[in-house]
Amino acid sequence: MIASAVGHTPAARPVAGPGDLGRVVLTRSGALSLPAPGRWDIDPVHSRIAASAFHLGITKADGRLRRFTGTIEMGTDLASTEVRAAVEPASVDTDDDVRDQHLRSADFLDVAAHPHIAFASTRITARSADRWTMTGDLVLKGVRNTVDLDVVHHGAGPDLWGGERAGFSATTQLSRDDFDIRWNQSVIAGILAVGRTLRIEIDIEAVRAS
C-alpha cells in the first residue's frame, strides 16, 4: 500500500491481507533535505522582516521593513550556499507616521545618507537537519558588523503556478550601539525611551528561479 498527499513524500507499507495499518505519517517534501541547488529569489509579498524594541522599559514597540529583495544561491550543501539581501530603511512602518519619520531621520536610520541595508552570508552551519546558524555581514547606517541568525528551514515543495517554493524563518538580536544608532531619551533615571536591543524576526518564502 502506498499513501500519498500533495506536497508530501509518499509512504509505502507491505500488505499481506486485511488488517489495521496503524498510524501512517507523511513527511513534508523537502522538510529534511536542502532545497534544490540553484538560485532562489525571495518573494517579498509572502515574506516579512519585523523588528521590536522595548518602549519605556515596560512594553515592546513593533515595526516592519516593507521593501526588500534577496537571493539564495543554494549549493549542494550548506557550506557552498550563499544568501544576499537588500532592505530599504525608508520603508519602516510602525503604524505611526510621526514615529516613522523620526526613525527615518539621522537620529536613527538616517535614510537620506544611507538608503540601503545590506546583508551577505559568510557561513551557514547545520545544528540539525532543519535548524541552521547563518553568520554574515550586516551593513546598517554605513556600519558593518558580523551577525548570527538562528534559521529554521520549513521545507520546500510545489506552488500553485507550476513553480517550486521553500520556506524559512530566522531570528537574531542586534545592539543599536553596534551600528551607531545611539539616540535616546531618559524618562527617569535608568529608564530609556527606546531599548538598546532590537529583536529581528524574518519569514522568507523563496521561489526557485527557472
Rank of each mutant, 00 (worst) to 15 (best):
S33V: 09
T76H: 11
D20N: 14
A61Q: 04
A16K: 09
R66E: 12
L56S: 02
P37S: 06
G30V: 09
P37L: 03
A90P: 07
A53M: 13
T71S: 15
T59E: 00
D97E: 13
T94A: 04
V45I: 14
I42W: 00
A90D: 13
V92K: 01
D41T: 15
S47I: 05
V83M: 09
S33P: 05
P37N: 05
A51L: 10
A86H: 11
Q101T: 14
A16R: 11
R66F: 01
G57Y: 03
G63S: 08
S91V: 04
T71E: 12
D77Q: 11
G30N: 06
T69V: 15
V92Q: 02
T27H: 09
A36R: 14
S29P: 00
D62M: 07
T27S: 11
G57T: 04
D96Y: 10
P44I: 08
H55I: 00
F68M: 06
D20I: 06
D96L: 11
R66L: 13
L78W: 11
H46A: 08
R48E: 07
E73I: 06
A85D: 02
G30W: 05
I42M: 02
A51Y: 15
Q101R: 15
P89V: 11
A53G: 04
P35K: 09
H46N: 14
D95N: 15
G38A: 10
D95H: 12
A16H: 14
D62T: 11
R67D: 13
G70K: 03
A86S: 15
I49T: 02
V98R: 15
W40D: 04
A51N: 02
A31Q: 09
Q101M: 12
F68C: 01
A90N: 10
T71R: 11
V24H: 07
F68Q: 02
Q101G: 14
D97M: 03
D43M: 02
V25L: 05
S47L: 03
K60Y: 02
P35E: 09
G38R: 10
A86W: 10
T69I: 12
G57Q: 07
I42V: 12
E88A: 14
G75R: 11
D62E: 13
D95P: 02
G63P: 00
F54C: 01
P37V: 01
V45A: 15
I49Y: 00
T71L: 08
V45S: 14
F54S: 12
D77H: 07
S47Y: 01
R67S: 09
P89E: 10
G22Y: 09
S80N: 15
A86N: 13
A50K: 10
I72T: 02
G30I: 08
R23M: 06
H55M: 01
D43P: 02
L65P: 00
G19N: 14
A90R: 13
I58Q: 01
T71Y: 03
A61K: 00
V98Y: 13
V87C: 12
A16L: 12
G38W: 10
D62K: 05
L34T: 03
G75V: 06
P35G: 11
R28W: 05
A53Q: 04
T76F: 04
T81L: 12
L21A: 15
I49R: 01
I49E: 01
D62S: 06
W40S: 06
A50E: 13
R64G: 00
I42P: 00
S91N: 08
A61Y: 04
G70W: 00
S47M: 08
L65N: 02
R28F: 08
A85F: 12
G57K: 11
